[in-house]
Amino acid sequence: MGASPSLPRQLAPAASSSDPEGSIRGDLTSTDEPIPLPTLRLRVGATDAFTYSVWSDRDVSNDSRNELIERVVRIKRCAAVVKGGRRFSFAAMAVVGDGKGKVGWGYGKANEVPPSVEKANKQASRSLVKVNLVDGTIPHVVKGHYGAARVILVPAGPGTGVIAGAAVRAVCEAAGITNILTKSFGSSNSVTLVKATIDALQQLRTNQDVERLRGVSLS
């Protein structure tokens, strides 16, 4: 392949002190080497003179912000009887996690659905708890309860997937669990099931945690 095309050395006249646009007009008369075309963006101004600007090399796709996984578990409509009729409001419960071992839940109320969901997501993002995971699953069998709801979580091998109901599945997926077996007993209320699942996940301990707590070696 031949060399890339280049601009001539004298593209525009040198800016003079009396020219008010001299600060933005390109002065290429003193350039020793030709400037490659791909590094320039050319446009014609009002004075028929070429100006140039270098393209930015910043990659906006490499954003370092951590994106959270948001799951809406339940939206409930409430009605208050007032003098003029009934006034409706909405309550939403959401589960938020980073997919890497942190998960939390939140509850929000508002007169419309979107504000209630936004409030729930904000509250959930402030109440994230750490969950111990091993290769996409939990390290051992664990039981959790809240109110009348009881949940049993069992580790599973690769390819099993998340075997759970809607409420328990939302918590597991937000926490980053990809393989797990679950069973719920008692109440089927989604709010209590979410809290029972998080209670179970907070009880998980790895071998290193047990060794540190007991002061013994398990190897």
Rank of each mutant, 00 (worst) to 15 (best):
M1N: 01
A3G: 05
S6V: 15
A12K: 02
A12F: 06
P13F: 09
A15Q: 04
S17N: 05
S18H: 05
P20M: 11
E21R: 15
S23H: 15
I24K: 10
I24M: 05
D27P: 01
D27I: 08
T29P: 00
T31S: 09
T31D: 10
D32C: 03
E33I: 09
I35L: 14
I35Y: 04
P36W: 02
T39G: 05
T39Y: 14
R41H: 08
R43I: 12
A46I: 11
T47D: 12
A49F: 11
S53Y: 04
V54G: 00
W55T: 10
D57H: 01
R58M: 07
R58H: 10
V60T: 11
S61V: 10
N62W: 02
N62A: 14
R65V: 11
R65P: 00
E70R: 09
R71F: 01
R71E: 12
R74D: 15
R77P: 01
R77T: 15
R77N: 02
A79P: 00
G84V: 09
G85I: 13
F88H: 08
F88N: 06
F90C: 07
A91C: 12
A94V: 15
D98Q: 03
D98E: 02
G99K: 08
G99N: 06
G99A: 07
G101K: 07
V103N: 07
V103H: 10
G104T: 13
Y107I: 12
Y107K: 00
G108E: 01
K109I: 14
S125M: 07
S125G: 08
V129M: 09
V129Y: 04
K130D: 10
K130C: 02
K130Q: 13
K130P: 00
K130M: 05
V131R: 05
L133A: 07
D135K: 14
D135I: 00
D135Y: 04
G136I: 04
T137M: 04
T137C: 03
H140S: 08
V142C: 12
Y146W: 12
G147V: 04
R150S: 08
V151Q: 08
I152M: 11
I152V: 15
I152Q: 11
L153N: 03
V154F: 05
P155T: 10
P155S: 11
A156G: 09
A156H: 03
A156C: 06
P158V: 02
G159R: 09
T160W: 00
I163F: 03
I163S: 10
I163V: 15
A164S: 04
G165V: 07
A166R: 14
A167D: 13
R169Q: 05
A170R: 10
A170L: 06
V171Y: 08
E173C: 13
E173Q: 15
E173H: 04
I177S: 09
I180E: 00
I180T: 02
S184C: 09
S184H: 03
F185L: 14
N189V: 04
T192S: 12
L193E: 15
V194A: 00
K195E: 15
A196N: 05
T197S: 15
I198F: 06
D199C: 04
A200S: 08
A200F: 07
T206S: 14
L213Q: 14
L213K: 06
L213R: 07
L213N: 07
V216H: 00
S217L: 08
S219C: 05
S219K: 13
